[in-house]
Amino acid sequence: MNGAGRAFLRLLSVQGSWNYERMQGIGMGFAAEPLLDDLRTTEPGRYPEAVVRSAEFFNANPYLAGLALGASARAEYDAVPGEQIVRLRAALAGPLGALGDSLFWAGILPALSGLALAALALGAGWWVVALFVLAFNAVRLATASWALSTGLASGMRVGGALGASKLPRAATRSGAAAAFAVGVGTPMAAAWLLHPFGARGVASAVLIAGAGLGLARWSGARFTATRFGLLALGITLLLRLVTA
């Protein structure tokens, strides 16, 4: 089977046609095209149905989608019955979503973000932001490349390969790292940004932050950050206008 390189590049856009009907399905089909190319000549009878399967409903973490992509492509070449491939894809989607979302969206991303904010407060310059982008993408590309090649090598046995990998453990640990880093970065960034306003500025900001946390607790999670931010700014503006 050829086309792994092109499939990897196409996977960078796996969410490019994200929609509520098939979610990442079309993007998966787009990335599968180079992988299935050889099937067109070796198994012309199977090829069209393999293409149809490759673009069915799918959703997982975008950086781990390659595991399902590679495994299903390998299974097509291994002449696995179609309905089993459909089930494999469906059964992989949820776990790859849960693992990848824990690892990246609730782990590495907030962890690096918190560290970058802390570094900025300590006086680091714009290069911290460059480092943030480089570090995230290094991990992301390494993971995505591992995912595709592991999927391609394992086919229907992909579950075992996933279980033997460091992924489940890393997903759990990165959550603690994220919680710690955001805990460190937030007060430091606030101190950095509030410095020109003296102790009164800090007191006001702490008051507003406390009100926000209280409101979030009282209203459940429905009071989004955007709404609270606009509310806080709006009230501040009103108070200034009234007292002026």
């Binding site: 919680a179 955001v182 940004l193 509030l194 306003f197 900001a205 008051l207 932050a209 700014l233």
Partner: peptide, 19 residues
């Protein structure tokens, strides 16, 4: 200045609340 202070306070609450 008051708006800047409010923005930083609300931002800190958002990050900590989300975390």
């Amino acid at each position: 200045a008051a708006l800047t202070i409010a923005a930083v306070g609300a931002a800190a609450a958002s990050a900590l609340g989300g975390a």
